[in-house]
Every structure is written in C-alpha cells, then in structure tokens.
C-alpha cells in the first residue's frame, strides 16, 4: 500500500459519499444518470465476489463492503425513494452498447478462464466506461450542478491516482496488471475533457455549462 493507492481509494470514497449526500440532502437525483449508477453497482458486485473466497486485509474487506453498500444505496435512492425526481428522459444512453462488448471482451482477454476471473475482468472493463451514460446526460442537457461536478472530479481523480500507484508498484514491487492498467488508462482519458471544464469553469466559481 502506497500513498497514491490510499489517496485513490479515499477519493473514490469521497466521490461516492458526495453523490449519496447530494441526493439525500436535496431529496432529488436530478441530473444524475441512474444508468451509470447501476453500472457502478454491477462493477462492485462482480468484482468483490472474492470477499467470500480470499481475505486480504481488514482495510480491503471493509472498503469493499462500504463501496458495494453505498453504490446499491445510490441505485435505490435514484430508482425507488426519489424516483419522481429522476431525469429519465435525459438518461438515454444505450447501456447494451457498453455491456455486450465489455462482456465479450472479458471472455476473450483475461488472466484466467475461470468464472471468478472473468467476472473480475468484466468489472474492470465495465468500470472504465461506466461513467459514459453520466457524461452523455450532461452533454445532452448542456449543464451539470456544481456538486455533480465535484462528484465527477473525485471519481476521475481516483483513477488518476491509481495510475501513479501502478507506476510506483511497477518500479518498487515489479508488479503490474496489464488489464487493470489499460482499462484504468481508458477510464482516466474519458475524464480529461471533463477535467478541463472543471478547472476552467467550476473552480473559478462558474456553473458547468456547455456551449449550445
């Protein structure tokens, strides 16, 4: 465990909590893509099945349980508790265009052709593109609430920090996991455009809105 990995995990947690709190405090999930949230919940559930098979550390297991519970709670808030505020008309990304190719790829390119390993690979690939419905929704409505942009910032920061963590681990431990690294790179790149807008607009106190 190095500082970049820890900081990455923490910003991931911060992102998840920001989103939960935003929905809970405003009693509304307007502007949030329920589809992205379902994808993230699927990512956690398929990846953390190893909670039942191996024990790595108390930290590892507790974080996994927190991530899974929070992501399922978010889906519940969007689709059940605050469903009336869910902006389904703008959440029109076709998720099957992500899930089907990602599913196929995880069968073809993996470390080991076993059910657990294929599910892990599926979750890694799926996570890298799971934010697309949310970004698509923002591009459709042309704007995002500032708190939503903070959520996206921490989510992107998490992946960026993981990239540094992998460079670190490669140099100091000789460890590298090509599947995670390539997927992590893709994931980080998807946030670049957003990062640019975040720095040039949101951090200067303006609302994130896209030119018409």
């Amino acid at each position: 465990m190095n500082i970049f990995r820890l900081a990455g995990d923490v910003s991931h947690l911060v992102a998840i909590i920001i989103l939960l709190l935003k929905i809970w405090k405003t009693r509304s999930c307007a502007g949030i893509s329920g589809k992205s949230q379902i994808l993230f919940a699927s990512v956690f559930v398929t990846r953390y099945l190893d909670l039942f098979t191996i024990f790595i550390s108390l930290y590892n297991s507790s974080m996994k349980i927190i991530y899974i519970s929070c992501s399922i709670a978010t889906v519940y808030l969007v689709y059940f508790k605050f469903k009336a505020t869910y902006d389904g008309n703008h959440d029109t990304f076709r998720v099957e265009f992500l899930v089907v190719p990602v599913g196929g790829l995880s069968f073809l390119v993996n470390h080991d052709f076993s059910p657990m390993e294929i599910l892990w690979t599926f979750s890694i690939y799926l996570e890298s593109v799971a934010i697309l419905p949310q970004l698509f929704m923002i591009s459709k409505t042309g704007e995002a609430e500032t708190i939503t942009t903070h959520y996206l910032f921490f989510l992107g920061l998490y992946r960026g920090l993981y990239l540094i963590n992998w460079i670190w681990r490669y140099y100091f431990e000789g460890f590298f996991d090509l599947i995670a690294i390539v997927a992590g790179l893709v994931q980080t790149v998807l946030y670049c455009d957003f990062f640019y807008l975040y720095v040039t607009k949101v951090l200067k106190g303006k609302k994130l809105s896209l030119p018409a």
């Binding site: 990995r5 995990d9 191996i54 790595i56 974080m63 991530y67 470390h111 080991d112 390993e117 993981y162």
Partner: peptide, 10 residues
Amino acid sequence: PEGRKMHDEL
C-alpha cells in the same frame, strides 16, 4: 504466480 491472480486492489 499465486499472487499474480490475487487482486489486492479495490
């Protein structure tokens, strides 16, 4: 090799 398959990251 055994460690290779253990995913210790989140």
